[in-house]
Amino acid sequence: GATAVSEWTEYKTADGKTYYYNNRTLESTWEKPQELK
C-alpha cells in the first residue's frame, strides 16, 4: 500500500545538523519522524 515516508524530506543545516520537513503538512522537526523509524 501507500506509505507516508515520501512526505518527509531530510535536510542538513549549514552547520551540519539534520532536520526533517513534511511536504504535506509543511511541518519541520529535529526529531526523526515516526514514519521514518
Rank of each mutant, 00 (worst) to 15 (best):
Y21R: 07
K17Y: 07
V5L: 14
A2N: 13
E27Q: 10
L26N: 15
Y20A: 00
T29E: 03
A2Y: 11
R24W: 09
S28G: 11
W8P: 00
A4G: 12
E27R: 04
A4T: 14
T9L: 08
W8Y: 02
L36G: 06
L26P: 01
W8S: 00
L26T: 09
S28E: 09
A14Q: 09
G16R: 01
E7G: 06
E7D: 12
V5R: 07
Q34T: 11
V5D: 12
K37P: 08
E7L: 05
L26M: 14
P33V: 02
W8L: 01
E10D: 02
T9W: 07
P33I: 03
E31D: 10
E35Y: 07
Y21D: 01
E35S: 10
A4H: 13
E10W: 05
L26Q: 15
T3C: 15
W8M: 00
E27T: 06
Y20M: 01
E10P: 04
G16Y: 01
T13P: 01
Q34M: 13
Q34V: 12
K17N: 06
N23S: 12
L36V: 07
N23D: 05
S6T: 11
K32D: 04
T25Q: 01
Q34Y: 10
P33H: 02
Y20E: 00
T13R: 04
T29Y: 06
Y21W: 10
K12Y: 09
G1P: 14
K37V: 14
Y21I: 12
A4P: 12
L36W: 08
P33A: 02
T9H: 10
E7Y: 06
T29P: 01
D15G: 07
A4M: 12
W8H: 00
S6I: 08
E35F: 06
P33T: 02
A2H: 13
P33Y: 03
A14L: 10
T3M: 13
E35I: 06
N22A: 00
K12N: 04
R24M: 10
Y19C: 11
G16Q: 03
S6D: 11
K37W: 11
V5K: 09
T3A: 13
N22D: 01
T29W: 04
K17R: 15
K17D: 05
T29V: 13
R24Q: 09
R24H: 09
S28L: 15
R24S: 08
G1F: 14
R24F: 12
E35D: 10
T18S: 10
A14G: 07
E27G: 03
T13K: 03
E7W: 08
S6Q: 10
T13V: 03
E31V: 12
V5C: 15
R24T: 10
L26S: 11
K37M: 15
N22I: 01
A14K: 11
T3S: 12
A4C: 14
E7M: 05
R24G: 04
E31W: 05
L36N: 07
L36M: 10
S6H: 10
K37F: 14
S6K: 08
E31Q: 08
V5M: 12
A4L: 12
A4S: 14
T18A: 05
S6C: 15
A2S: 13
T9Q: 11
K17I: 08
T18F: 07
G16N: 03
E27P: 00
A2K: 08
V5Q: 13
Y21T: 07
T29A: 06
W8D: 00
G16E: 02
S6P: 11
T25A: 01
E31T: 10
T25I: 02
R24Y: 11
E35W: 05
